[in-house]
Simulated assay, not measured.
Amino acid sequence: MNFKDDIKTLRRQSNLTQEALAQQLHVTRQTVSTWETGKNMPNLETLHALSHLFNISLEKLLFNEEIAMKKDKEPSLAIQIDHDVKLKSRYRRWTFGLGSLIALALVSIGILCLGYYKGIGTIDRFDPFLSYKVGYTKLPNEKEISPNNKTTNGYWTAWFTDNTMGNEWTKLTLTTGLNPGVKDPYVMAYHKGSYVKVARIVPRTYINQTYVSNIAALDALLNHKGNTATNNHDLKKYKTQIHISDTVQQLVTE
């Protein structure tokens, strides 16, 4: 007997139709039919699956005889096939696992970048590449920050200077409540990217004068006060971006 007859006999002995066998092997009924008519042969993985399904060795399935591995001899073809199929399956799992990890890493990095450049505080809060900073800005007028403001519900947005050099700025959206009576009020925000953990209203005398100068320079730049270098500077980015690295003091001359 040859393979096409053997596979048909084994299928019938197992009380399986071509359709039932095809379902167990994840192939079509037409594929099984081509095996049984001798028009085609299963691939190595399918042969391996057939040997397990019918509880028969690959030697018996392929050659209709048992071929044992002799001492000091090379393994039989069937044993080599079985070994190769197992290795291929193992490599496929490793490749899938590694690919999944790489894909997950890329998606995570993409989400973190989106959070940073779009100013999504919920994402920035869990970004391991960001660190907490203390930023300062001048407190807006009472109408803008009032919790009774139906448009903003007390949330307001402003540029905060994050260092004394005046070349690190972050646009933050936060709520502070009304001024409790602080004279010449400023806001100190402890933030990570766009995520604000805590913010406090403090008097001007509480913060470094350099920060005050930075804030005044930015206000002059945005409101075209004094001699501003607007001809060489695109102010549109202050409306669209979340993070700016301009040394504002160099752009403004009072």
Rank of each mutant, 00 (worst) to 15 (best):
L114D: 00
K86E: 02
L112N: 12
L114N: 07
Y116Q: 15
T95C: 01
S100E: 03
A103H: 00
S108V: 06
I109W: 10
D127K: 02
P128W: 08
S100C: 06
R90L: 13
Y91A: 11
L106Y: 02
L114F: 14
G115R: 07
L106G: 01
F96A: 12
R92V: 01
V85H: 08
R90E: 13
Y117M: 08
D124H: 05
F96V: 08
C113K: 05
I102K: 00
K88F: 03
I120S: 13
S108M: 13
I111H: 05
G119W: 10
G97N: 05
R125L: 10
R125E: 14
I123Q: 12
L98K: 03
L98A: 07
G115P: 13
K86N: 04
I123P: 13
P128Q: 09
G119Q: 07
I123C: 10
I79E: 06
Q80S: 11
I102L: 13
L98E: 00
I102N: 00
D127R: 00
A103L: 14
T122K: 12
R92N: 13
L98R: 00
L101C: 13
S108H: 04
A103K: 01
S89D: 02
S89L: 07
L87K: 02
G99Y: 02
K88T: 04
V107M: 09
S89A: 08
V107F: 07
L104I: 01
D127A: 11
G110I: 03
L87E: 14
P128K: 09
G99T: 02
A103T: 06
I120L: 15
G121Y: 10
Y116D: 13
L106H: 03
W94R: 10
Q80D: 12
Q80G: 12
Y91R: 06
I102H: 03
F96C: 06
L114M: 10
Y91G: 02
L98G: 08
D82K: 10
L101S: 11
D82E: 15
G115M: 08
R90D: 05
H83F: 15
S108W: 09
L98P: 00
D124V: 10
Y117A: 00
L114S: 09
L98T: 05
I123K: 11
A105G: 01
L106V: 05
L101P: 00
Q80V: 12
T95Y: 04
H83M: 12
T122M: 09
D124I: 10
D124R: 06
L101W: 07
L104Y: 04
Q80M: 15
R93S: 01
L101Y: 05
I81V: 15
V107L: 06
R93W: 04
I120F: 10
F126D: 07
G97I: 02
K118H: 07
G121T: 11
I111S: 04
Q80R: 11
K86A: 12
Y117D: 07
G119T: 14
D82W: 02
A105W: 05
I111L: 08
L87N: 09
I79T: 11
F126G: 00
K88M: 06
Y91D: 05
G119H: 08
L112K: 09
D124K: 08
L114Y: 15
R93M: 05
V107W: 04
I102E: 01
V85E: 09
P128N: 06
L114Q: 07
